[in-house]
C-alpha cells in the first residue's frame, strides 16, 4: 500500500468528493470502494461550508485538501494555509491552474508554490504534468510525492502519454507516484497501476457515472488488479506468437 510522507494509506484509490448526486451517495461510494484518501476542494467549498466538511470528516478516511481553482502562487498558498487550519493536516494537494479549458497545471507557479509551502512545513502533493524536468524541480522544492496527470481533469480520456508516465516511474523509482486526473474507466486506472504507480486519484469518473457506487467499486477492483499485475512482473509484449502449448510430440500430418 502507498506510503505518503511516512503515513501508510490503506488503499491506492484516492477519491474526490465533488459532483456526486448527494452526500449520501458519496458516502456510499467511499464505503463500496474502500478508498484510502478523500480529497476535498477548499476554494469553492470552503469558508462556511462546515456542514459539508463534517460530512467529509464522517467518511473516516484521511483528508487531502486541495487548492483546486487557484490561479496564482499567492492564492494557492493562502488556500493551503486555510486548509491546514480547517482540516488540521499538513497535507495539501497543490493545484495551480493557468488555463481554464484544459485545467493544465501552471508548472512554473506550481514549483514556486511547492517551495514556499514545503518550507512552511506542508507536505505537498503536487498536481503536475509528466515532464521529467518539472518533476525533478518539484522534488528539489521539497515534494516527496508526485502526481502527474493522466489527461485533463474531468476529461475521462485515460492515460494520454503512457510513455511519459513510464519514464517518470523509471526516473524516480523511490518517489511515491500518483496518476491524478483524466481517468474515465477502470481499465485506465488498472493501466496506471500496471505501470508501477503507487496510487490513482479520481473523482468525476465515479461521481458522474450513472451508478457512482458501482463505479467506485469497479475502480477499486481494477486498481487492485493492476497492482497485483505489476507485482507479478508481467511478460513483455512481442510481435510474433509464442505458443503456450508445447508442440513437441504432436503428430506430423501430411
Amino acid at each position: 500500500m502507498p506510503v505518503f510522507y511516512g503515513t501508510d494509506v490503506e488503499s491506492p484509490l484516492m477519491l474526490g468528493t465533488a459532483l456526486y448526486p448527494s452526500p449520501a451517495i458519496m458516502a456510499e461510494a467511499f464505503r463500496a470502494s474502500g478508498a484510502g484518501i478523500a480529497t476535498v476542494s477548499l476554494r469553492r467549498e470552503g469558508g462556511a461550508g462546515q456542514d459539508f466538511h463534517n460530512l467529509i470528516k464522517g467518511l473516516n478516511v484521511p483528508v487531502l485538501p486541495n487548492t483546486a481553482g487557484c490561479h496564482s502562487v499567492r492564492e494557492a498558498v493562502t488556500t493551503a494555509q486555510m486548509a491546514r487550519e480547517l482540516f488540521d493536516t499538513p497535507w495539501i494537494k497543490l493545484e495551480v491552474i493557468r488555463d481554464d479549458d484544459t485545467l493544465c497545471p501552471d508548472v512554473i507557479a506550481l514549483v514556486e508554490a511547492a517551495r514556499i509551502l514545503s518550507d512552511d512545513g506542508f507536505q505537498v502533493f503536487p498536481y503536475c504534468t509528466e515532464d521529467l524536468s518539472v518533476c525533478g524541480r518539484l522534488l528539489d522544492a521539497g515534494c516527496e510525492v508526485l502526481m502527474p496527470w493522466g489527461a485533463p481533469i474531468g476529461s475521462g480520456r485515460g492515460l494520454n502519454n503512457p510513455y511519459g508516465l513510464r519514464s517518470v516511474r523509471a526516473h524516480f523509482p523511490d518517489v511515491p507516484l500518483v496518476v491524478d486526473a483524466g481517468i474515465g474507466l477502470p481499465s485506465h486506472a488498472a493501466q496506471a497501476m500496471e505501470l508501477g504507480f503507487d496510487a490513482v486519484l479520481l473523482n468525476t469518473a465515479v461521481a458522474k457515472a450513472g451508478d457512482p457506487v458501482a463505479m467506485a467499486r469497479a475502480m477499486a477492483l481494477a486498481i487492485q488488479a493492476g497492482q497485483l499485475a505489476h507485482a507479478a512482473n508481467p511478460i513483455e509484449a512481442r510481435d510474433m506468437a509464442a505458443p503456450s502449448t508445447p508442440v513437441f510430440g504432436m503428430a506430423v500430418l501430411g
Binding site: 467549498e45 462556511a48 461550508g49 462546515q50 456542514d51 459539508f52
Partner: peptide, 8 residues
C-alpha cells in the same frame, strides 16, 4: 450549486 452552507 455550492456546498458552502450560508447565505452570502
Amino acid at each position: 450549486m455550492l456546498e458552502t452552507g450560508g447565505k452570502y
